[in-house]
Nucleic acid binder design. Structure first.
Length: 584
DNA sequence: GCCGTTTTCGGCCCGACTGTTTTCAGTCG
Protein backbone atom coordinates (compact mmCIF):
# COMPACT_ATOMS: atom_id res chain seq x y z
CA UNK A 1 0.00 0.00 0.00
CA UNK A 2 1.85 3.10 -1.18
CA UNK A 3 -1.02 5.58 -1.00
CA UNK A 4 0.35 7.34 2.06
CA UNK A 5 3.73 7.63 0.37
CA UNK A 6 2.27 9.16 -2.80
CA UNK A 7 0.12 11.54 -0.75
CA UNK A 8 3.17 12.67 1.26
CA UNK A 9 4.98 13.39 -1.99
CA UNK A 10 2.15 15.63 -3.18
CA UNK A 11 1.79 17.37 0.18
CA UNK A 12 5.49 18.13 0.17
CA UNK A 13 5.31 19.57 -3.35
CA UNK A 14 2.29 21.65 -2.28
CA UNK A 15 4.25 23.12 0.63
CA UNK A 16 7.10 24.20 -1.61
CA UNK A 17 4.77 25.68 -4.22
CA UNK A 18 2.97 27.55 -1.49
CA UNK A 19 6.30 28.90 -0.29
CA UNK A 20 6.98 30.10 -3.83
CA UNK A 21 3.63 31.93 -3.67
CA UNK A 22 2.30 29.89 -6.56
CA UNK A 23 -1.46 30.29 -6.66
CA UNK A 24 -3.99 27.43 -6.66
CA UNK A 25 -1.57 24.63 -7.46
CA UNK A 26 -0.89 23.89 -3.80
CA UNK A 27 -4.62 23.51 -3.25
CA UNK A 28 -4.96 21.16 -6.22
CA UNK A 29 -2.02 19.06 -5.03
CA UNK A 30 -3.39 18.84 -1.50
CA UNK A 31 -6.83 17.87 -2.69
CA UNK A 32 -5.37 15.10 -4.84
CA UNK A 33 -3.18 13.95 -1.93
CA UNK A 34 -6.15 13.83 0.39
CA UNK A 35 -8.24 11.77 -2.00
CA UNK A 36 -5.37 9.33 -2.51
CA UNK A 37 -4.88 8.97 1.25
CA UNK A 38 -8.52 7.98 1.66
CA UNK A 39 -8.86 5.89 -1.45
CA UNK A 40 -9.34 2.54 0.24
CA UNK A 41 -7.65 0.86 -2.67
CA UNK A 42 -3.95 0.46 -3.33
CA UNK A 43 -2.94 3.05 -5.88
CA UNK A 44 -0.30 0.69 -7.23
CA UNK A 45 -3.02 -1.83 -8.06
CA UNK A 46 -5.05 0.82 -9.86
CA UNK A 47 -2.04 1.86 -11.90
CA UNK A 48 -1.05 -1.73 -12.68
CA UNK A 49 -4.58 -2.52 -13.81
CA UNK A 50 -5.71 0.60 -15.64
CA UNK A 51 -2.60 2.74 -16.10
CA UNK A 52 -2.86 6.52 -16.09
CA UNK A 53 -6.51 6.36 -17.13
CA UNK A 54 -7.25 4.71 -13.79
CA UNK A 55 -5.35 7.41 -11.91
CA UNK A 56 -7.28 10.20 -13.66
CA UNK A 57 -10.52 8.65 -12.41
CA UNK A 58 -9.49 9.57 -8.87
CA UNK A 59 -11.22 12.87 -8.00
CA UNK A 60 -8.70 15.71 -7.90
CA UNK A 61 -6.21 13.86 -10.09
CA UNK A 62 -5.90 15.17 -13.64
CA UNK A 63 -3.49 14.45 -16.42
CA UNK A 64 -0.57 16.31 -14.94
CA UNK A 65 -0.72 14.80 -11.45
CA UNK A 66 -1.38 11.37 -12.97
CA UNK A 67 1.87 11.73 -14.92
CA UNK A 68 3.73 12.60 -11.74
CA UNK A 69 2.26 9.65 -9.85
CA UNK A 70 3.08 7.24 -12.70
CA UNK A 71 6.63 8.54 -12.82
CA UNK A 72 6.94 8.10 -9.08
CA UNK A 73 5.57 4.57 -9.03
CA UNK A 74 7.91 3.51 -11.81
CA UNK A 75 11.13 5.31 -10.95
CA UNK A 76 10.76 6.17 -7.26
CA UNK A 77 10.97 9.90 -7.86
CA UNK A 78 9.53 12.78 -9.83
CA UNK A 79 12.02 14.86 -11.77
CA UNK A 80 9.96 18.02 -11.42
CA UNK A 81 9.63 17.65 -7.65
CA UNK A 82 13.33 16.95 -7.24
CA UNK A 83 14.03 20.33 -8.82
CA UNK A 84 11.42 21.99 -6.61
CA UNK A 85 13.17 20.80 -3.46
CA UNK A 86 16.05 23.20 -3.97
CA UNK A 87 13.67 26.15 -4.16
CA UNK A 88 12.65 26.22 -0.51
CA UNK A 89 14.70 26.36 2.71
CA UNK A 90 15.84 22.97 3.94
CA UNK A 91 13.90 23.37 7.18
CA UNK A 92 10.73 24.63 5.49
CA UNK A 93 8.54 21.70 6.47
CA UNK A 94 9.44 22.12 10.13
CA UNK A 95 9.13 25.91 10.05
CA UNK A 96 5.63 25.60 8.61
CA UNK A 97 4.64 23.81 11.81
CA UNK A 98 5.25 26.92 13.89
CA UNK A 99 1.99 28.61 14.78
CA UNK A 100 1.84 32.08 13.25
CA UNK A 101 4.40 31.36 10.57
CA UNK A 102 3.01 30.74 7.09
CA UNK A 103 4.41 30.73 3.59
CA UNK A 104 4.53 34.51 3.18
CA UNK A 105 6.32 35.30 6.40
CA UNK A 106 8.69 32.41 5.90
CA UNK A 107 9.68 33.66 2.46
CA UNK A 108 10.28 37.12 3.85
CA UNK A 109 12.51 35.67 6.57
CA UNK A 110 14.45 33.58 4.08
CA UNK A 111 14.87 36.43 1.58
CA UNK A 112 15.87 39.13 4.03
CA UNK A 113 17.57 37.30 6.89
CA UNK A 114 18.59 34.06 5.18
CA UNK A 115 16.62 31.95 7.67
CA UNK A 116 16.47 28.37 6.43
CA UNK A 117 16.02 26.24 9.55
CA UNK A 118 14.35 26.32 12.94
CA UNK A 119 17.66 27.03 14.64
CA UNK A 120 18.30 29.96 12.25
CA UNK A 121 14.95 31.35 13.32
CA UNK A 122 15.71 30.92 17.00
CA UNK A 123 19.00 32.76 16.62
CA UNK A 124 17.38 35.61 14.72
CA UNK A 125 14.71 35.99 17.39
CA UNK A 126 17.30 35.95 20.17
CA UNK A 127 19.15 38.78 18.37
CA UNK A 128 15.87 40.69 17.88
CA UNK A 129 16.39 40.83 14.15
CA UNK A 130 12.75 40.10 13.25
CA UNK A 131 11.16 43.18 14.77
CA UNK A 132 12.90 45.48 12.33
CA UNK A 133 11.42 43.82 9.26
CA UNK A 134 8.52 45.39 7.42
CA UNK A 135 5.26 43.71 8.39
CA UNK A 136 6.85 42.27 11.53
CA UNK A 137 7.08 43.87 14.94
CA UNK A 138 7.96 43.29 18.55
CA UNK A 139 4.77 41.37 19.21
CA UNK A 140 5.21 39.05 16.23
CA UNK A 141 8.71 38.24 17.40
CA UNK A 142 7.51 37.46 20.91
CA UNK A 143 4.67 35.31 19.62
CA UNK A 144 6.96 33.32 17.36
CA UNK A 145 9.31 32.73 20.29
CA UNK A 146 6.38 31.38 22.31
CA UNK A 147 5.14 29.30 19.38
CA UNK A 148 8.58 27.70 19.00
CA UNK A 149 8.63 26.88 22.68
CA UNK A 150 5.18 25.31 22.35
CA UNK A 151 6.22 23.40 19.24
CA UNK A 152 9.26 21.95 20.93
CA UNK A 153 7.26 20.96 24.00
CA UNK A 154 4.60 18.99 22.18
CA UNK A 155 4.53 19.07 18.43
CA UNK A 156 3.20 15.56 18.17
CA UNK A 157 -0.51 14.91 18.21
CA UNK A 158 -2.25 13.69 21.36
CA UNK A 159 -3.64 10.16 21.50
CA UNK A 160 -7.42 9.91 21.59
CA UNK A 161 -7.19 8.00 24.86
CA UNK A 162 -5.43 10.94 26.47
CA UNK A 163 -7.42 13.77 24.88
CA UNK A 164 -10.89 12.44 25.60
CA UNK A 165 -10.49 12.31 29.40
CA UNK A 166 -8.89 15.80 29.36
CA UNK A 167 -11.82 17.18 27.36
CA UNK A 168 -14.36 15.51 29.65
CA UNK A 169 -12.64 17.04 32.67
CA UNK A 170 -12.33 20.57 31.21
CA UNK A 171 -15.95 20.58 30.08
CA UNK A 172 -17.08 19.37 33.48
CA UNK A 173 -15.19 22.21 35.20
CA UNK A 174 -16.28 24.81 32.65
CA UNK A 175 -19.92 23.86 33.16
CA UNK A 176 -19.55 24.22 36.92
CA UNK A 177 -17.98 27.68 36.52
CA UNK A 178 -20.61 28.83 34.05
CA UNK A 179 -23.36 27.64 36.34
CA UNK A 180 -22.01 29.90 39.10
CA UNK A 181 -21.61 32.88 36.74
CA UNK A 182 -24.75 32.99 34.61
CA UNK A 183 -28.08 31.22 34.46
CA UNK A 184 -28.64 32.06 30.81
CA UNK A 185 -26.33 29.45 29.28
CA UNK A 186 -27.61 26.00 28.33
CA UNK A 187 -24.91 23.83 29.89
CA UNK A 188 -25.93 20.76 27.91
CA UNK A 189 -24.79 22.55 24.77
CA UNK A 190 -21.16 22.72 25.93
CA UNK A 191 -19.53 19.85 24.05
CA UNK A 192 -16.32 18.91 22.33
CA UNK A 193 -16.16 19.11 18.53
CA UNK A 194 -13.29 18.77 16.07
CA UNK A 195 -11.32 15.61 15.42
CA UNK A 196 -12.14 14.53 18.97
CA UNK A 197 -15.86 14.32 18.15
CA UNK A 198 -14.93 12.37 15.03
CA UNK A 199 -12.97 10.06 17.40
CA UNK A 200 -9.85 10.29 15.31
CA UNK A 201 -6.98 8.20 16.70
CA UNK A 202 -4.89 11.27 17.44
CA UNK A 203 -5.95 14.85 18.05
CA UNK A 204 -4.10 18.09 17.33
CA UNK A 205 -5.99 20.24 19.81
CA UNK A 206 -9.25 20.05 21.70
CA UNK A 207 -12.16 22.12 20.34
CA UNK A 208 -15.08 23.01 22.56
CA UNK A 209 -18.34 24.66 21.51
CA UNK A 210 -20.85 26.52 23.67
CA UNK A 211 -24.10 28.32 23.00
CA UNK A 212 -24.91 31.76 24.39
CA UNK A 213 -26.69 34.95 23.42
CA UNK A 214 -24.38 37.81 22.43
CA UNK A 215 -24.46 39.46 25.84
CA UNK A 216 -23.54 36.26 27.66
CA UNK A 217 -20.75 35.04 25.39
CA UNK A 218 -17.99 37.02 27.03
CA UNK A 219 -18.95 35.63 30.44
CA UNK A 220 -18.41 32.10 29.13
CA UNK A 221 -15.08 33.17 27.63
CA UNK A 222 -13.99 34.65 30.94
CA UNK A 223 -14.80 31.41 32.74
CA UNK A 224 -12.85 29.51 30.14
CA UNK A 225 -9.61 31.50 30.11
CA UNK A 226 -9.53 31.58 33.91
CA UNK A 227 -9.87 27.82 34.40
CA UNK A 228 -7.27 26.56 36.89
CA UNK A 229 -5.55 24.29 34.36
CA UNK A 230 -4.90 27.11 31.89
CA UNK A 231 -1.27 28.09 31.43
CA UNK A 232 -1.28 30.58 28.52
CA UNK A 233 -4.04 32.49 26.79
CA UNK A 234 -3.13 32.57 23.09
CA UNK A 235 -6.06 34.67 21.95
CA UNK A 236 -9.36 35.82 23.36
CA UNK A 237 -12.32 37.29 21.50
CA UNK A 238 -16.07 37.30 21.95
CA UNK A 239 -16.63 34.22 19.77
CA UNK A 240 -13.30 32.45 19.90
CA UNK A 241 -10.58 31.91 22.48
CA UNK A 242 -7.51 29.69 22.55
CA UNK A 243 -5.54 28.55 25.57
CA UNK A 244 -2.79 26.12 26.37
CA UNK A 245 -3.12 23.92 29.43
CA UNK A 246 -0.31 23.45 31.93
CA UNK A 247 0.29 19.93 30.65
CA UNK A 248 0.70 21.32 27.11
CA UNK A 249 -2.60 20.60 25.35
CA UNK A 250 -4.11 23.41 23.26
CA UNK A 251 -7.85 24.06 23.67
CA UNK A 252 -10.12 26.30 21.59
CA UNK A 253 -13.52 27.48 22.74
CA UNK A 254 -16.13 28.96 20.37
CA UNK A 255 -19.34 30.54 21.56
CA UNK A 256 -22.23 31.02 19.14
CA UNK A 257 -25.87 32.15 19.42
CA UNK A 258 -28.66 29.50 19.44
CA UNK A 259 -29.73 30.08 15.83
CA UNK A 260 -26.20 29.15 14.73
CA UNK A 261 -25.43 26.34 17.16
CA UNK A 262 -26.04 23.47 14.72
CA UNK A 263 -24.12 25.16 11.94
CA UNK A 264 -21.19 25.79 14.27
CA UNK A 265 -21.28 22.23 15.58
CA UNK A 266 -21.25 20.95 12.02
CA UNK A 267 -18.51 23.34 10.97
CA UNK A 268 -16.16 22.84 13.89
CA UNK A 269 -16.56 19.08 13.87
CA UNK A 270 -15.02 18.98 10.41
CA UNK A 271 -13.19 17.48 8.82
CA UNK A 272 -12.04 20.40 6.78
CA UNK A 273 -12.28 18.32 3.63
CA UNK A 274 -15.80 17.20 4.46
CA UNK A 275 -16.81 20.82 5.03
CA UNK A 276 -15.35 22.03 1.76
CA UNK A 277 -17.40 19.44 -0.12
CA UNK A 278 -20.49 20.46 1.82
CA UNK A 279 -19.96 24.11 0.98
CA UNK A 280 -19.55 23.27 -2.67
CA UNK A 281 -22.90 21.49 -2.58
CA UNK A 282 -24.40 24.56 -0.91
CA UNK A 283 -23.00 26.82 -3.63
CA UNK A 284 -24.46 24.63 -6.38
CA UNK A 285 -27.86 24.91 -4.75
CA UNK A 286 -27.58 28.69 -4.57
CA UNK A 287 -26.84 28.70 -0.84
CA UNK A 288 -24.01 29.89 1.30
CA UNK A 289 -22.84 27.76 4.23
CA UNK A 290 -20.80 29.11 7.12
CA UNK A 291 -20.45 28.37 10.82
CA UNK A 292 -23.43 30.67 11.36
CA UNK A 293 -25.89 28.85 9.19
CA UNK A 294 -27.11 27.94 5.76
CA UNK A 295 -28.30 31.00 3.83
CA UNK A 296 -29.91 31.71 0.49
CA UNK A 297 -27.15 33.47 -1.37
CA UNK A 298 -29.33 36.12 -3.03
CA UNK A 299 -31.46 37.25 -0.11
CA UNK A 300 -29.21 36.30 2.77
CA UNK A 301 -32.15 34.58 4.44
CA UNK A 302 -31.19 31.79 6.86
CA UNK A 303 -32.81 28.45 6.05
CA UNK A 304 -31.01 26.24 8.59
CA UNK A 305 -28.60 26.66 11.49
CA UNK A 306 -29.87 25.66 14.91
CA UNK A 307 -29.26 21.93 14.43
CA UNK A 308 -26.88 19.80 12.37
CA UNK A 309 -29.74 17.61 11.19
CA UNK A 310 -31.56 20.45 9.45
CA UNK A 311 -28.41 21.54 7.65
CA UNK A 312 -27.76 18.12 6.14
CA UNK A 313 -31.45 17.84 5.31
CA UNK A 314 -31.54 21.23 3.56
CA UNK A 315 -28.55 20.15 1.46
CA UNK A 316 -30.43 17.03 0.37
CA UNK A 317 -28.32 14.70 2.50
CA UNK A 318 -29.05 12.10 5.15
CA UNK A 319 -27.55 12.94 8.56
CA UNK A 320 -23.88 11.94 8.55
CA UNK A 321 -22.47 10.74 11.90
CA UNK A 322 -19.29 12.64 12.93
CA UNK A 323 -17.02 9.59 12.64
CA UNK A 324 -17.74 9.36 8.90
CA UNK A 325 -17.00 12.98 8.07
CA UNK A 326 -13.65 12.51 6.36
CA UNK A 327 -14.64 12.98 2.71
CA UNK A 328 -14.18 9.26 2.08
CA UNK A 329 -17.39 8.91 0.11
CA UNK A 330 -19.84 9.61 2.94
CA UNK A 331 -21.34 12.62 1.18
CA UNK A 332 -22.19 10.65 -1.95
CA UNK A 333 -23.60 7.86 0.22
CA UNK A 334 -25.69 10.37 2.17
CA UNK A 335 -27.07 11.81 -1.07
CA UNK A 336 -28.22 8.33 -2.07
CA UNK A 337 -29.44 7.58 1.44
CA UNK A 338 -26.98 4.69 1.49
CA UNK A 339 -24.98 5.42 4.66
CA UNK A 340 -24.14 2.44 6.85
CA UNK A 341 -26.06 2.04 10.09
CA UNK A 342 -23.01 2.28 12.31
CA UNK A 343 -22.31 -0.04 15.20
CA UNK A 344 -23.05 1.39 18.67
CA UNK A 345 -21.22 0.59 21.87
CA UNK A 346 -24.48 -0.73 23.33
CA UNK A 347 -24.53 -3.40 20.59
CA UNK A 348 -21.57 -5.19 22.19
CA UNK A 349 -22.33 -8.30 24.22
CA UNK A 350 -18.87 -9.24 25.37
CA UNK A 351 -15.12 -8.69 25.39
CA UNK A 352 -12.93 -11.25 23.65
CA UNK A 353 -9.43 -10.19 24.69
CA UNK A 354 -8.79 -9.94 28.43
CA UNK A 355 -5.71 -10.62 30.58
CA UNK A 356 -5.60 -11.59 34.26
CA UNK A 357 -2.82 -11.87 36.81
CA UNK A 358 -2.17 -15.38 35.52
CA UNK A 359 0.00 -13.53 32.97
CA UNK A 360 0.67 -9.79 32.77
CA UNK A 361 -2.74 -8.52 33.95
CA UNK A 362 -3.05 -6.68 37.25
CA UNK A 363 -6.35 -8.13 38.45
CA UNK A 364 -7.52 -11.62 39.29
CA UNK A 365 -9.66 -13.83 37.11
CA UNK A 366 -12.56 -13.33 39.49
CA UNK A 367 -12.25 -9.52 39.47
CA UNK A 368 -12.17 -9.36 35.68
CA UNK A 369 -15.25 -11.58 35.41
CA UNK A 370 -17.11 -9.60 38.07
CA UNK A 371 -16.41 -6.32 36.31
CA UNK A 372 -17.40 -7.66 32.91
CA UNK A 373 -20.66 -8.93 34.35
CA UNK A 374 -21.24 -5.52 35.98
CA UNK A 375 -20.83 -3.91 32.55
CA UNK A 376 -23.80 -6.00 31.44
CA UNK A 377 -21.87 -8.31 29.14
CA UNK A 378 -23.22 -11.71 28.17
CA UNK A 379 -19.78 -13.25 27.76
CA UNK A 380 -16.07 -12.67 28.30
CA UNK A 381 -13.03 -14.47 26.90
CA UNK A 382 -10.02 -14.92 29.16
CA UNK A 383 -6.96 -14.72 26.93
CA UNK A 384 -3.69 -14.70 28.82
CA UNK A 385 -0.38 -14.93 27.00
CA UNK A 386 1.10 -18.20 25.78
CA UNK A 387 4.30 -19.77 27.05
CA UNK A 388 6.88 -18.03 24.82
CA UNK A 389 5.92 -14.61 26.17
CA UNK A 390 8.38 -14.75 29.05
CA UNK A 391 8.32 -10.99 29.67
CA UNK A 392 4.54 -11.03 30.00
CA UNK A 393 4.69 -14.15 32.18
CA UNK A 394 3.11 -16.28 29.47
CA UNK A 395 1.38 -19.44 30.70
CA UNK A 396 2.98 -22.87 30.53
CA UNK A 397 0.52 -25.63 29.65
CA UNK A 398 0.14 -26.73 33.27
CA UNK A 399 -0.73 -23.22 34.39
CA UNK A 400 -3.21 -22.86 31.53
CA UNK A 401 -4.92 -26.06 32.63
CA UNK A 402 -5.05 -24.76 36.19
CA UNK A 403 -6.77 -21.64 34.86
CA UNK A 404 -9.37 -23.82 33.10
CA UNK A 405 -10.18 -25.46 36.42
CA UNK A 406 -10.67 -22.11 38.11
CA UNK A 407 -12.85 -20.93 35.22
CA UNK A 408 -15.02 -24.04 35.55
CA UNK A 409 -15.41 -23.31 39.25
CA UNK A 410 -16.19 -19.60 38.77
CA UNK A 411 -18.64 -20.34 35.95
CA UNK A 412 -21.01 -21.75 38.54
CA UNK A 413 -21.03 -18.46 40.49
CA UNK A 414 -21.68 -16.06 37.62
CA UNK A 415 -24.40 -15.42 35.06
CA UNK A 416 -21.86 -14.29 32.45
CA UNK A 417 -20.48 -16.98 30.10
CA UNK A 418 -16.71 -17.39 30.33
CA UNK A 419 -14.75 -18.51 27.27
CA UNK A 420 -11.43 -20.29 27.82
CA UNK A 421 -9.02 -18.56 25.52
CA UNK A 422 -5.41 -17.69 24.93
CA UNK A 423 -3.49 -14.96 23.19
CA UNK A 424 -1.08 -17.28 21.46
CA UNK A 425 2.17 -16.04 19.97
CA UNK A 426 2.59 -16.42 16.25
CA UNK A 427 6.16 -17.69 16.14
CA UNK A 428 8.66 -16.63 13.53
CA UNK A 429 7.78 -19.48 11.17
CA UNK A 430 4.04 -18.80 11.48
CA UNK A 431 3.28 -21.74 13.80
CA UNK A 432 1.38 -21.14 17.02
CA UNK A 433 2.93 -21.27 20.47
CA UNK A 434 0.81 -24.20 21.78
CA UNK A 435 0.47 -27.69 20.30
CA UNK A 436 -2.78 -28.61 18.52
CA UNK A 437 -4.04 -30.80 21.36
CA UNK A 438 -4.06 -27.73 23.62
CA UNK A 439 -5.40 -25.33 20.97
CA UNK A 440 -8.36 -27.56 20.22
CA UNK A 441 -9.40 -27.55 23.87
CA UNK A 442 -9.67 -23.76 23.88
CA UNK A 443 -12.95 -21.97 23.16
CA UNK A 444 -11.16 -19.11 21.47
CA UNK A 445 -7.64 -18.63 20.10
CA UNK A 446 -6.16 -15.21 19.41
CA UNK A 447 -2.96 -15.12 17.40
CA UNK A 448 -0.59 -12.21 17.72
CA UNK A 449 2.96 -11.15 17.07
CA UNK A 450 5.11 -10.06 20.01
CA UNK A 451 8.60 -10.68 18.67
CA UNK A 452 10.58 -10.49 15.48
CA UNK A 453 8.94 -7.19 14.51
CA UNK A 454 11.71 -6.32 12.10
CA UNK A 455 11.16 -9.18 9.63
CA UNK A 456 11.14 -8.10 5.98
CA UNK A 457 7.69 -7.62 4.49
CA UNK A 458 7.68 -10.85 2.53
CA UNK A 459 8.58 -13.05 5.50
CA UNK A 460 6.25 -11.21 7.87
CA UNK A 461 3.38 -11.63 5.41
CA UNK A 462 4.13 -15.36 5.03
CA UNK A 463 4.32 -15.72 8.80
CA UNK A 464 0.87 -14.21 9.31
CA UNK A 465 -0.69 -16.01 6.35
CA UNK A 466 0.60 -19.33 7.71
CA UNK A 467 -1.02 -18.55 11.05
CA UNK A 468 -4.29 -17.63 9.34
CA UNK A 469 -4.28 -21.02 7.63
CA UNK A 470 -4.09 -22.79 11.00
CA UNK A 471 -7.52 -24.29 11.65
CA UNK A 472 -7.32 -23.56 15.38
CA UNK A 473 -6.73 -19.84 15.09
CA UNK A 474 -9.88 -17.73 15.40
CA UNK A 475 -8.77 -14.12 15.58
CA UNK A 476 -5.76 -12.18 14.34
CA UNK A 477 -5.10 -9.81 17.25
CA UNK A 478 -3.65 -6.29 16.93
CA UNK A 479 -2.82 -7.02 13.30
CA UNK A 480 -0.39 -4.19 12.54
CA UNK A 481 1.54 -4.26 15.82
CA UNK A 482 1.88 -0.51 16.01
CA UNK A 483 2.15 1.47 19.23
CA UNK A 484 0.90 4.99 18.59
CA UNK A 485 3.78 7.44 18.64
CA UNK A 486 6.18 4.70 19.77
CA UNK A 487 6.42 1.83 17.33
CA UNK A 488 5.63 1.79 13.64
CA UNK A 489 3.48 -1.02 12.29
CA UNK A 490 5.53 -3.94 11.05
CA UNK A 491 6.07 -4.34 7.32
CA UNK A 492 3.32 -6.50 5.93
CA UNK A 493 1.30 -6.88 2.74
CA UNK A 494 -2.26 -6.31 3.97
CA UNK A 495 -3.83 -7.30 0.67
CA UNK A 496 -2.44 -10.80 1.13
CA UNK A 497 -3.26 -10.93 4.82
CA UNK A 498 -6.86 -9.88 4.19
CA UNK A 499 -7.18 -12.35 1.33
CA UNK A 500 -5.96 -15.14 3.60
CA UNK A 501 -8.23 -14.07 6.46
CA UNK A 502 -11.24 -13.95 4.12
CA UNK A 503 -10.40 -17.29 2.50
CA UNK A 504 -10.15 -18.99 5.89
CA UNK A 505 -13.05 -17.12 7.49
CA UNK A 506 -10.79 -15.73 10.22
CA UNK A 507 -11.75 -12.76 12.35
CA UNK A 508 -9.73 -9.59 12.64
CA UNK A 509 -9.42 -7.75 15.93
CA UNK A 510 -9.93 -4.07 16.47
CA UNK A 511 -7.83 -3.58 19.59
CA UNK A 512 -9.21 -0.76 21.78
CA UNK A 513 -6.11 -0.07 23.85
CA UNK A 514 -5.54 3.69 23.43
CA UNK A 515 -1.88 3.06 22.64
CA UNK A 516 -2.78 0.58 19.89
CA UNK A 517 -6.10 1.23 18.11
CA UNK A 518 -5.15 -1.58 15.80
CA UNK A 519 -6.44 -2.09 13.10
CA UNK A 520 -6.75 1.57 12.26
CA UNK A 521 -9.76 3.07 10.49
CA UNK A 522 -8.30 3.01 6.98
CA UNK A 523 -7.36 -0.66 7.17
CA UNK A 524 -10.74 -1.54 8.68
CA UNK A 525 -12.41 0.02 5.65
CA UNK A 526 -10.08 -1.91 3.40
CA UNK A 527 -10.55 -5.22 5.24
CA UNK A 528 -14.31 -4.86 5.12
CA UNK A 529 -14.22 -4.90 1.31
CA UNK A 530 -12.77 -8.43 1.57
CA UNK A 531 -15.89 -9.55 3.44
CA UNK A 532 -13.97 -10.04 6.68
CA UNK A 533 -15.74 -10.06 10.08
CA UNK A 534 -14.26 -8.29 13.07
CA UNK A 535 -14.27 -8.30 16.85
CA UNK A 536 -13.74 -5.22 18.99
CA UNK A 537 -11.77 -6.05 22.14
CA UNK A 538 -10.09 -4.14 24.94
CA UNK A 539 -6.93 -6.24 25.48
CA UNK A 540 -7.54 -5.32 29.14
CA UNK A 541 -4.66 -5.57 31.56
CA UNK A 542 -6.80 -4.48 34.50
CA UNK A 543 -10.50 -4.24 35.30
CA UNK A 544 -10.42 -0.49 34.63
CA UNK A 545 -9.23 -1.16 31.06
CA UNK A 546 -12.55 -2.83 30.21
CA UNK A 547 -13.94 0.66 29.57
CA UNK A 548 -11.49 1.18 26.68
CA UNK A 549 -14.16 -0.33 24.45
CA UNK A 550 -15.38 3.18 23.52
CA UNK A 551 -12.15 3.84 21.63
CA UNK A 552 -12.35 0.64 19.61
CA UNK A 553 -15.98 1.29 18.78
CA UNK A 554 -14.95 4.75 17.59
CA UNK A 555 -12.42 3.29 15.18
CA UNK A 556 -14.94 0.69 13.97
CA UNK A 557 -17.42 3.47 13.26
CA UNK A 558 -14.73 5.43 11.42
CA UNK A 559 -14.22 2.24 9.39
CA UNK A 560 -17.91 2.21 8.42
CA UNK A 561 -18.67 -0.98 10.38
CA UNK A 562 -22.20 -2.06 11.16
CA UNK A 563 -23.39 -4.30 13.99
CA UNK A 564 -23.42 -7.36 11.74
CA UNK A 565 -19.73 -6.89 10.84
CA UNK A 566 -18.66 -7.38 14.45
CA UNK A 567 -19.02 -10.85 15.99
CA UNK A 568 -19.06 -9.76 19.62
CA UNK A 569 -22.42 -8.11 18.99
CA UNK A 570 -23.80 -11.61 18.40
CA UNK A 571 -25.64 -13.51 21.14
CA UNK A 572 -23.54 -16.18 22.86
CA UNK A 573 -24.96 -19.14 20.93
CA UNK A 574 -24.35 -17.48 17.57
CA UNK A 575 -20.81 -16.50 18.57
CA UNK A 576 -20.10 -20.11 19.56
CA UNK A 577 -21.35 -21.29 16.17
CA UNK A 578 -19.01 -18.88 14.39
CA UNK A 579 -16.04 -20.07 16.46
CA UNK A 580 -16.95 -23.74 16.03
CA UNK A 581 -17.30 -23.41 12.29
CA UNK A 582 -13.81 -21.95 12.07
CA UNK A 583 -12.28 -25.15 13.47
CA UNK A 584 -14.09 -27.58 11.20
C1' DG B 1 -3.58 22.00 -11.50
C1' DC B 2 -8.50 20.54 -11.57
C1' DC B 3 -13.17 20.92 -12.85
C1' DG B 4 -17.98 21.66 -15.12
C1' DT B 5 -26.97 19.29 -15.64
C1' DT B 6 -25.94 27.15 -15.02
C1' DT B 7 -19.20 27.09 -17.42
C1' DT B 8 -13.88 23.83 -21.63
C1' DC B 9 -12.52 29.44 -19.20
C1' DG B 10 -12.59 31.28 -14.98
C1' DG B 11 -13.50 30.06 -11.05
C1' DC B 12 -11.37 27.53 -6.78
C1' DC B 13 -14.89 27.62 1.32
C1' DC B 14 -15.54 31.13 4.69
C1' DG B 15 -14.95 33.91 8.61
C1' DA B 16 -12.31 35.27 13.13
C1' DC B 17 -8.39 37.11 15.29
C1' DT B 18 -3.98 39.50 15.48
C1' DG B 19 -0.63 42.77 14.48
C1' DT B 20 0.86 46.32 12.01
C1' DT B 21 -1.77 48.65 9.69
C1' DT B 22 -4.88 53.97 8.84
C1' DT B 23 -7.99 49.83 5.63
C1' DC B 24 -5.55 45.34 5.44
C1' DA B 25 -2.52 41.13 5.03
C1' DG B 26 -1.34 36.94 7.06
C1' DT B 27 -2.60 32.96 9.40
C1' DC B 28 -5.56 29.55 11.18
C1' DG B 29 -9.01 26.12 11.32
Amino acid sequence: MRNREVAELLYEAADILEYQQVEWKPRAYRRAAQMIENLGEDIENIYAREGKAGLIKIPGVGKSIADHIAEYLETGKVEKFEKLKGKAPSGAAELMEIRGLGAKKMKKLADTLGIRTLSDLKNAIAAHRLRRLEGFGEKTEENLAKAIEQYEKSHSRIALGKALPIADEIIFTLKARCKDTTSKVDLSKIIYTGSLRRLKETIGDIDILAEAEKGEALKVMNCFVSLPDVDQVILKGSTKSSVILKEGTAIDLRVVPPESYGAALQYFTGSKEHNIELRNIAIKKGYKLSEYGLYIKESGKQIAGSSEEEIYKALGLAYIPPELRENRGEIKAAAKNALPKLIEQSDLRGDLHVHTNYSEGKDSLKTMIERAEALGYEYIAITDHSRSQKIARGLEIEKLKAQWKEIDKLSKCFRIKILKGSEVDILKDGTLDFPDEILKELDIVLGSIHSGFALPEKEMTERIVTALENRYLDILAHPSGRLLGKREPYAVNYERVFEAAAANGKLIEINSQPSRLDLNDELILRAKTFGIKFCISTDSHSAADLTFMRYGVGQARRGWLEKEDVVNTYPYTRLKEVLKKLKE
